[in-house]
Design a protein around this nucleic acid. Structure first.
Length: 573
RNA sequence: GCCUUCGUAGUUCAAUGGAUAGAACAGGACUCUUCUAAGGUCUUGAUGUAGGUUCGAUUCCUACCGAAGGCACCA
């Protein structure tokens, strides 16, 4: 199937004939197209071993391969170059064939890396009563893309969201709502109400830090939230919970995420607590009145953490333990349980995972934690100082507004421009998160992400929209995609299109969406160059049907690639 | 102090142990009687420091310097 694998097989056979074996070699895409379509370092790997000149060995291997080629895989050329690389040049027809594959095979992007596997992926995790901030946005964007990439590899993905429905943050918000009753206004929209709750939270958080009386009041509220003994607090809680959770749903809709499972902290706590208590003495131990897990006894790089406080309250670690067990109970045949969070949670997640691996060794190889960095602002001014928190919602709103301004003169109807602004805005945000590898911090530059130039989500969408309008023109001119007459030259964009499948495979293997992002930019650039230098839908051109087919393939790849990133492709913009 | 993730053009990011380290932005010069100029064409510039492994290191190992995060009753 994969051309790379076929070449590898061919070389392996040649090595057998030459009676050489014992090392691994690579077949890869050379960076410089002059060095062929595929390249291998096999001669260099073996030369040392056999005490041969690598170029001589390469020539010998090539001489063995040449007569072995099967007709349909016959190369246009095979050359030895550099310090001993063997370069393979594919024939013109090969690239036409790969375009045909893209047009005719609906599943051209799919691979079977995770075929039939059940995977639960937890991501986003915003807390009711607290603003959905840019960190949640980042986790959501990464998690959604990984979900789609896993699905593309044949996995059945269950999207899960874990939320803190009780705890000090709730008490802080309720305190703020009680102090400033205008924030309880229920006449505004969902978003407006949830913004008010966010303000109440900021009020409470600030008071808790700076004022002893307020702190005491908040502690009292916290208890009442737990035991539900106060009717007024219950009523505020029920309203606030509903409003913030529904506002999150609105945001998920804009972002393109749909969760299958919601886990609430208050429900995970007793599950975790039971497990911890059952394993005191074996896994957990008492220390200063608290129940702790001494992870350093099992792995010197880990440290002790408290699971149940000296007050008898379960900590985050215990809840996380309960959550993981509950996930496996929910999906008994689960093959992998993946959690996406910010990097700051990496260390204690490791401790929790270690504790759990002792209690449930069968889970150990199935648990995976993907961590990403923080989203920072290049301008530096938009820090999350009190009352000035950058919420996901406000960021999307600002980006959208800026795009609306820009498309004013496009002649769209009101609904059309709203829709385009939404799709382009989300693309701008998602692109700036997914263009780099997961793990490092992301420096977010607002102006740059809506500049639409070069390295951006809107650039990709624009390329799509333009190609789409070429296809519209072709339709009017009655030019149908055909592969019978091939242009003399092979366009760069064709070569890149033929690599889509293997790029997606790599992104899947490494769990790194940015491979797809970077590839799409390359393809779009190549197509835009092709577009700029060729008239495509030209009736007088005998190769026009082929160029139209190429354009079709480009839109298919771009649409599918952007889908895997969670980005939509408007047909006009 | 220990642990985690990182140090690549002026800036923001790429590079599955390979060939001349790729883009984009910013700067400069061209380019719309042609399918969307949010486009295209040309142009300058970088691997933190010191060792090691290797035919070959941005990539792997060690030390140092620098950044971000974490290290017991918050999540």
């Amino acid at each position: 199937m994969e051309t790379k694998d076929n070449i590898k097989k061919l070389i392996t056979k040649a090595l057998e004939k030459l009676d050489i074996s014992g090392a691994d070699f690579a077949v890869e895409y050379p960076e410089n197209p002059e060095n062929g379509d595929y390249s291998t370092n096999v001669a260099m790997v073996y030369a040392q071993k056999l005490r041969m000149n690598p170029r001589e060995l390469a020539e010998k291997i090539v001489a063995t391969i040449l007569p072995m080629q099967v007709k349909e895989y016959a190369m246009a050329d095979i050359k030895v170059a550099g310090s001993g690389f063997i370069n393979f040049y594919l024939p013109r027809a090969y690239f036409a064939g790969s375009l045909e594959e893209i047009l005719n095979n609906k599943n051209f992007s799919k691979n079977s890396l995770m075929q039939g596997k059940k995977v639960m992926l937890e991501y986003t995790d915003p807390n009711p009563f607290k603003p959905f901030h840019i960190g949640h946005l980042m986790t959501n964007v990464i998690g959604e893309s990984i979900s789609r990439i896993l699905e593309n590899s044949g996995a059945e993905v269950f999207r899960a969201n874990y939320q803190g429905d009780v705890g000090m943050h709730v008490a802080r918000a309720i305190w703020g709502l009680l102090k400033n009753a205008t924030l309880q206004d229920k006449s505004g929209t969902l978003i407006e109400q949830s913004i008010n709750i966010g303000k109440a939270y900021a009020l409470g958080a600030d008071a808790y830090e700076t004022d002893e009386n307020s702190k005491a009041e908040i502690n009292v509220i916290n208890k009442k939230v737990y035991d539900r003994s106060d009717a007024e607090i219950n009523s505020i809680y029920d309203w606030g919970f509903k409003v913030t959770m529904e506002a999150f749903e609105d945001l998920y809709k804009v972002l393109g995420t749909k969760f299958d499972y919601y886990f609430l902290e208050s429900q995970m706590a007793p599950i975790g607590e039971r497990i911890v208590k059952e394993h005191i003495g074996k896994v957990f131990s008492e220390s200063d009145g608290a129940i702790v897990f001494k992870a350093e006894d099992y792995d010197p790089k880990l440290h002790t953490r408290v699971f149940i406080t000296s007050q008898g309250l379960p900590t985050y670690e215990t809840k996380e333990l309960g959550l993981t067990v509950e996930k496996f109970a929910t999906l008994p045949k689960m093959d992998a349980s993946i959690v996406v969070t910010a990097l700051e949670q990496a260390d204690y997640m490791r401790v929790v995972a270690k504790a759990l691996s002792i209690i449930h060794p069968e889970y150990e190889s199935k648990m995976r934690h993907i961590t990403h960095g923080m989203l920072r602002f290049a301008s530096g001014k938009m820090s999350s100082r009190k009352g000035n928190v950058v919420t996901g919602e406000s960021l999307i709103r600002d980006v959208r507004a800026s795009i609306l301004e820009r498309i004013k003169e496009r002649g769209f109807s009101r609904e059309e421009s709203e829709e385009v602004a939404s799709k382009v805005g989300v693309a701008a945000l998602k692109y700036s998160i997914l263009k780099q590898s997961i793990g490092g911090d992301i420096i977010y530059d607002f102006d740059k992400s809506i500049s639409f130039e070069g390295d951006s989500g809107p650039y990709l969408q624009y390329s799509y929209a333009r190609a789409y309008s070429v296809l519209e023109k072709a339709k009017q001119e009655n030019i149908l995609p055909e592969f019978s007459v091939l242009p003399e030259q092979t366009f760069e964009v064709e070569k890149l299109l033929s690599r889509f499948h293997s790029v997606v495979l790599r992104a899947s293997q490494e769990g790194e969406p940015h491979h797809i992002t970077n590839y799409l930019i390359e393809v779009a650039r190549a197509y835009n160059s092709f577009y700029g230098n060729n008239l495509i839908a030209d009736k007088s051109d005998r190769t026009a049907p082929y160029k139209v087919a190429l354009t079709f393939a480009f839109t298919f790849v771009l649409k599918r690639g952007l889908y895997l990133l969670g980005i939509e492709t408007p047909e006009k913009m």
